[in-house]
Amino acid sequence: MDVFMKGLSKAKEGVVAAAEKTKQGVAEAAGKTKEGVLYVGSKTKEGVVHGVATVAEKTKEQVTNVGGAVVTGVTAVAQKTVEGAGSIAAATGFVKKDQLGKNEEGAPQEGILEDMPVDPDNEAYEMPSEEGYQDYEPEA
């Protein structure tokens, strides 16, 4: 019985440690998101679009440190934060509304985080759909 109880105690310690790591990862992701939003706020009209992409990228980098179902929630929060940063930029006159959601080359930025393969159960990952990809044929 002692062996059984000791095993359960060790398992509990492992769960607590994993929860603490997840909590730490979420806190880091939130900190990076805040950094990115402050970065966007300090940019001029020309830099705002690039700044919004930076927020998304920093958040995406930190999301990889967070495991399990938390990833889905962090990704949703990050996307809403990026959308909010863009709205703030438009409201303050840093950028025109028609410039939001495009990178410096004018290509749409939507789907940055949505296409990231995420499995809350950590069982399997699927690649994003290939609808947006084109076949590449090298020139002879």
Rank of each mutant, 00 (worst) to 15 (best):
A18W: 07
K10N: 06
K6S: 04
K43T: 08
G86V: 02
K58L: 04
E28D: 09
G51P: 03
V49Y: 09
T72W: 04
E114W: 10
Q79P: 03
G31I: 10
T64M: 10
K80A: 06
E35F: 13
S87L: 13
V66Q: 03
Y125W: 07
G7E: 05
A27V: 10
K96S: 15
G84K: 08
N103Y: 06
T72P: 01
I88W: 05
P120Y: 13
I88D: 06
N103W: 14
T22G: 10
A30L: 14
K45W: 14
E28K: 07
V15W: 10
A78S: 08
Y39R: 00
G84M: 08
A89L: 10
V37Y: 00
S129I: 04
G36K: 10
T92N: 05
A76K: 10
V82Q: 04
A76I: 06
K80H: 11
T72N: 06
N122S: 10
L8V: 03
K97I: 15
F4N: 00
Q99N: 07
K45G: 06
V52S: 05
E46H: 11
E114G: 12
T33H: 05
A107I: 06
Q109S: 11
D135I: 12
V40N: 02
P138L: 14
D121G: 09
G14I: 15
V37G: 05
M127K: 12
M127T: 08
V66W: 13
A30Q: 02
A27C: 03
A27Q: 10
A17Q: 14
G68Q: 03
G101K: 09
Y133F: 14
A27H: 08
G68Y: 10
F94L: 13
K45P: 00
K23E: 00
E126A: 06
A85Q: 05
F94W: 10
D115H: 05
K32Q: 07
K10E: 02
G93I: 11
E28Q: 04
G14W: 04
A29S: 04
A85E: 06
E20R: 02
G51M: 02
Q62C: 10
E61N: 03
G31C: 09
P117C: 09
N103T: 09
V66S: 01
G41F: 12
Y136H: 06
I88T: 06
V15S: 00
V82E: 05
V52E: 00
T81D: 04
V118I: 10
V63D: 03
A30S: 02
H50T: 11
T75H: 04
G101T: 07
G67D: 03
G41K: 11
T64S: 06
A91N: 09
V95T: 15
V16K: 01
G31L: 15
E57C: 07
E57F: 11
N103P: 05
D135H: 12
K45Y: 12
G86F: 15
G47C: 13
A85Y: 13
E105W: 10
E105C: 11
K96Y: 15
A124T: 14
D121V: 09
E105Y: 07
A124I: 04
G41N: 01
A78C: 06
F4T: 00
A78W: 12
L100T: 15
E114R: 11
H50K: 06
